[in-house]
Amino acid sequence: MICMRMRGVMESTLVAAAMTGAGIGSAHAGLRYNMPEGVSEISRSVYSLHMAMFWVCVAIGALVFGAMIYSIVRFRKSAGAQPANFHENTAIELIWTAIPFAILVIMTIPAAGLLIKMDDTSQSDMTIKITGYQWKWHYDYLDQDVSFFSALAQDSNAARQLGAQIDLKSVDHYLLNVDHPVVVPVGKKIRFLITSNDVIHSWWVSDLAVKKDAIPGFINEFWTRIDVPGIYRGQCAELCGRDHGFMPIVVEAKTPEDYAAWLDAQHAAKAQQTAMVNGAALAAAR
């Protein structure tokens, strides 16, 4: 309740500050300023942990800043304050060592539990292998014989060139769109294996609360189970050279039926392509 109201206040002040401060008038209906709650059980837990820690900090901040502001107002020399002379108090020093310590121990409990859950990639329903390249992603559906590259969408790529005279608003999801999104089913535990072909990259989709580095020569694992069908966007999150800012990630979560249909289409396309290649080879051989 309070939390909601505070958020409203915060948002309106911010937008106001934004508009006056930077002098831009475009109204941002859905200005995002917080971590998304996301679309998986894990992402929601991460969000709660984040908010819990945030409120702990706000509370402690209110105490500390409150005491400081009180001193600044109350104990001004100009208002005739006379200095006291105390400079030690073991009891209070022990208290303000012990209380923060206790708070931190309490905070680690949910954090540790969550970490353990996120770490457990066993009993997954399917596995997708991700390989980072400078500057695109490769996806390999390990037991489906489906694999493809996924790179920044053409229109974004044209618009992001130095001095390009393209209206960015006319570009579909500028910088956050790819040619081949990675398609996954909802409700399934999907295990991802991630590695890199050159330098370190990092695969991050904040709606899923997953981020894992792609290390050349090693395979890292992580998992997600998406609840809601939809399109979720992310970006490479480890500096990987010139076009690090231009290798987005798009995850398309579909219902199991739609996903199966998509898989079929992929297989069909692949079969057709093989046939064509074989045909061409035959023709060449003749």
């Binding site: 066993s122 292998k129 294996l193 590695t195 020569g217 090693f218 395979i219 694992e221």
Partner: peptide, 18 residues
């Protein structure tokens, strides 16, 4: 050990890469 697949975390490193 990781490159050789020790432990559950590195088994895929071993199987798929080395």
């Amino acid at each position: 050990p990781w490159l050789a697949g020790a432990g559950s975390k590195s088994i895929m490193t071993h199987l798929l890469l080395w």
